[in-house]
Amino acid sequence: MATPNVLILRAPGTNCDLETAFAFETAGAKTERVHVNRLLEEPNRFDRFQILCIPGGFSYGDDVAAGRILANQIIHHLSDAMARFKDAGKLILGICNGFQVLIRSGVLLDGNAEQGSPATLTWNDSGRYEDRWVRLGTDGTKCVFFKDVERMYLPVAHAEGKFVARDEATLNRLAAAGQLVLRYLPLDGGMAGAKRSAGWLGHSEAVPQATDILPFPDNPNGSQANVAGVCDATGRVLGLMPHPERHITRTQHPRWTRPETTQTGDGLKLFENAVAYFA
């Protein structure tokens, strides 16, 4: 199949759906924005899509906690349809609020009854919402979305994006499995940070220690191990806090009027990879 169909999931408070659809279409996909109520009425609607994207926003106002209410609906009403989608070898992408939903619903990282969720996204160390650009590095080749991507420059815009694992063992396990696929890098170009963190920039064996956490604003929220994005064990489900759909064209770059910038946005490749996966 040449042109994958992308389901852009909409819920009350979703607000990055249009530009996310635009990014997928620029990358060559077909998109349809579907309200969660339509899926609740008819979970089989999932089946005719190849990619599911939960875009950014404030689903249900982020009331109680970011992404919690939509995650709750997925757990209670859509978990079978979601599992079927995943098992069919399709792709799932959660951006910002979508990442929060994927992690809280257990779609991204399986939990178990005794121990609960392996990780969470909690309040930024700054205690508030912030919109700023970050430098990112990918780790390993596991994730479909990051094929041939090493570095990206993207904006984050969130209040609850600090990645915290349940315990150190869980963090180690995720790192060893290559699932901590996207990390914040120093804004100065990555040299200082790259040296210090050589262990986890390659195929990681060494688990980052707490002392490796980059200072604000390199790591904008205080995430453990500087984690900005996580994939599941298959590499086909990705959640990330930064917004790739906000860096598709040159003029979205905060310094496009300066000599140093490039012609296309770093975020486009992620969507192109998703489309190419079905080529």
């Binding site: 607000n15 990055c16 249009l18 530009e19 635009f22 990014a23 950014g56 508030r128 919402y129 912030e130 919109d131 700023r132 904006p155 815009a157 917004h243 759909e245 906000r246 598709i248 979205q252």
Partner: peptide, 11 residues
């Protein structure tokens, strides 16, 4: 910085 000044992608 506390305001989202880039949502909708037109910045």
């Amino acid at each position: 910085r506390q305001y989202d000044h880039e949502v909708q992608g037109g910045s």
